[in-house]
Design a protein around this nucleic acid. Structure first.
Lengths: 409, 409
DNA sequence: CGCTTTTTTTCGGCGCTCGGAAAAAATCGA
DNA sequence: TCGATTTTTTCCGAGCGCCGAAAAAAAGCG
């Protein structure tokens, strides 16, 4: 709260800022950095020299800027891919995926496995994760830098410290301390993050022109998740990862949700809810465990051909999402929305009811700021977001003079 | 985004931090400041000497610390009340209030007037406000410092820059540029803020042990407002002041709200909604313009004596608030709640339904973190919050070397 | 081949914070 | 009453980081 600024904090912060600027740009000249940061040539020069000698940055004169200019050509400054390696793990319903990513953000190896996450014992799930990460870490190429961070992205709620999975619809057990487990196994700092937060980070990273300061990523799959970026910052709960958009109340005492409560947005808009509604099952029918992508696609196809219960189910989903977004927009103002995941493929069926619902809420007022985009494949987004999260953690640790131990110097 | 830290930013930030620490503590010794900030004795000494010579701080040896100690007694460091003066203006339904506050936070003068805010022409409303502020500014005591800031707290939505009142239920017209109007009239920097945000600031200021990092202030009056503090920061919208809790959707296409839409929380929990419901009027009956405090008190009294429509109306209000809070807690996790305003006097009638509703939502899970407190009188909170907001603006301007022009040196 | 242009590094200076020593201002004890 | 003790505050030299200006470097241009 009332932390004073020591003199040496200055250098640390400017180092961090320079690394961040290089990470954003990929390859920049020192002169560009001067313009971007407002620091002097001398300072940029000194800091980048330090970082190069520490093996964090590397000069990359390889074709970047149009070399057809008059004076001394700019020397590109990029992240040294060998400075470090991070591991990302994604745990979604019945899927476990992991990847090895170098310091420059390049995916070097990837592994995937199907397994019954919901029914298998937690111990086996943990074992499978440790084994997969272990294989990646051990078989990594010789030129790869030391593994500096692991980020686990998982569907569900994590604690605010990003160390435990508090609750998840895809696991049999609550409160699994993934971070400690992986740290004990590999001696590598680890955090556990919400999958939709990682999606938001990835979107911001890949499409900064569209997803800049304020936007919303909504994952439409078996359940409903949300990643929220407000004022340039990832928004999360105060005690948990928060942002459980799917469990905002749509209709008090309404349809039965996978979480056991009633009337959640998810109980109308999740795949299982659409499937239940399309099958004319009662709203309090137990949610189905898993519904195949092809099955949902067939449902959508039927909804497109005739105005039957299938179409009504998608309409109900759109309405729930619309009123949910309306309530959200009452709190944070409208912002661009990305609809992510297989469920977003049925956006054409959802959209009319969604738009009509939003128009009847506080969010409808400034609907000019509203726009929707569809990203059907969430897996690469989760992976890239987790990688970026891991790498920025590493960036921030590199800046601390003492913490640079894992890096060559 | 990528702003580098210049060398002289350091001093500015440490000045700001020192001022903030003194403002929090009221009167501190330099040694306490060393402990609080982590800076060295030398630095604290140098900065405080500067600030004293600039007339921002003043030594206040007057009884603060237990002087029954061995060594050299501590010299108290406090804000110089004459360093500056700020003006707060509060505009609520049919009430206009303004106050003059010195740099140390003491209210020196106050003025109040009843006027029909909802029906009178905007020009007259503006004129009345300018006149009231003008009286305070001109008749201020001789020893008062220059007027350095005006903060207008108003029921309604303001723009993100805090310069305009975008929409308000208490005025006849939308989009009134109060900040520019007062700046033109008095040449004093002005901002327009949401009243509930000011309430939240005041609560944090006055009861830091209870309202610390995360809490919620809900104003129960004719309408429903909210001030939200998350992770120590006042939470607001991205384009407007946001946080329109009262206009989250409780029941899609439900009761008619004062905002013209349907099913908002306010349409069940605002005074007019309770009055409408208790009178067995239909849910789409036009909201009453204003309902006296005594009338609402009488309603509550009837509700307490018999289980009639009055009690049912309060129950409906509690339910709406409960489900609304449940949706909010799905996004941000539960936090202590302050129920502010006359409407909170009926908390005993609201509470059972509210608790039952929350228990059926995502927020009900960690209900241990939940607690409610009642603050019946919102006016002093609005005034003090606005004063604090104004004073911290001044604090932050004092730190900028060039901006210290308004201060004696 | 020398001149211009642009980028990058080098160098001297200034301001900020730090640590330690000295000064200041009180109490305690004889 | 006076010195010893204790605690707070100020003073002073040193180190570090940033800046501006100038020099050096690395091209293209004619």
């Amino acid at each position: 709260m009332t932390a004073g600024f020591r003199h040496d904090d200055l250098r640390r912060r400017n180092r961090a800022m320079l690394i961040a600027a290089v990470r954003r740009a990929g390859s920049v000249s020192r002169t560009d950095l001067v313009a971007a940061t407002g620091l002097s040539h001398s300072t940029i020069s000194a800091i980048s020299a330090d970082l190069i000698s520490e093996g964090v940055l590397a000069e990359t004169r390889a074709g970047d800027l149009p070399t057809a200019r008059r004076g001394r050509p700019q020397v590109g400054l990029g992240l040294d891919p060998q400075a470090a390696t991070v591991v990302t793990v994604a745990l979604t319903l019945n899927h476990l995926t992991a990847a090895l990513v170098d310091y420059a953000g390049e995916v070097k190896q990837e592994d995937h496995r199907r397994l019954p996450t919901k029914t298998m014992p937690t111990a086996e799930l943990v074992e499978a994760m440790v084994a997969m990460v272990g294989r990646l870490v051990e078989l990594r190429p010789a030129e790869a830098g030391p593994v500096a961070r692991i980020v686990v992205a998982v569907q569900g709620t994590t604690d605010a410290a990003a160390r435990r999975l508090l609750w998840s619809p895809i696991a049999s057990q609550a409160d699994i301390p993934f971070a400690s487990i992986l740290e004990d196994a590999f001696g590598v700092p680890t955090t556990v993050e919400n999958d939709c937060s990682m999606i938001a980070i990835a979107l911001r990273w890949k499409q900064p022109e569209r997803y800049r300061e304020d936007f919303i990523a909504i994952l439409l799959s078996h359940g409903i998740g949300m990643g929220l970026v407000l004022k340039g910052e990832l928004f999360g709960g105060t005690q948990s990862s928060g942002c459980e958009f799917g469990h905002m109340v749509h209709r008090p005492d309404g349809a039965l949700c996978r979480c056991g409560r009633r009337g959640c947005v998810e109980a109308y808009a999740g795949s299982y809810a659409i499937w239940r509604s399309a099958g004319l099952l009662p709203d309090d029918a137990e949610p189905a465990a898993d519904i195949g992508d092809d099955e949902m696609a067939a449902l959508a196809a039927r909804a497109r051909t005739a105005d039957g219960p299938e179409r009504a189910a998608f309409r109900r989903a759109g309405e729930a999402l619309g009123f949910g977004l309306g309530s959200l927009f009452a709190l944070v103002d409208p912002a661009p929305v990305a609809l992510v995941g297989r469920g977003a493929l049925a956006f054409d069926l959802i959209e009319p009811a969604l738009a009509a619902a939003i128009a009847r809420t506080a969010g409808g007022e400034h609907s000019g700021a509203l726009s929707f985009a569809v990203e059907p494949d969430e897996m690469p987004l989760i992976r890239d977001g987790a990688a970026m999260r891991a790498l920025t953690y590493v960036d921030d640790e590199v800046l601390a003079p003492g913490a640079a131990s894992g890096l060559p110097s």
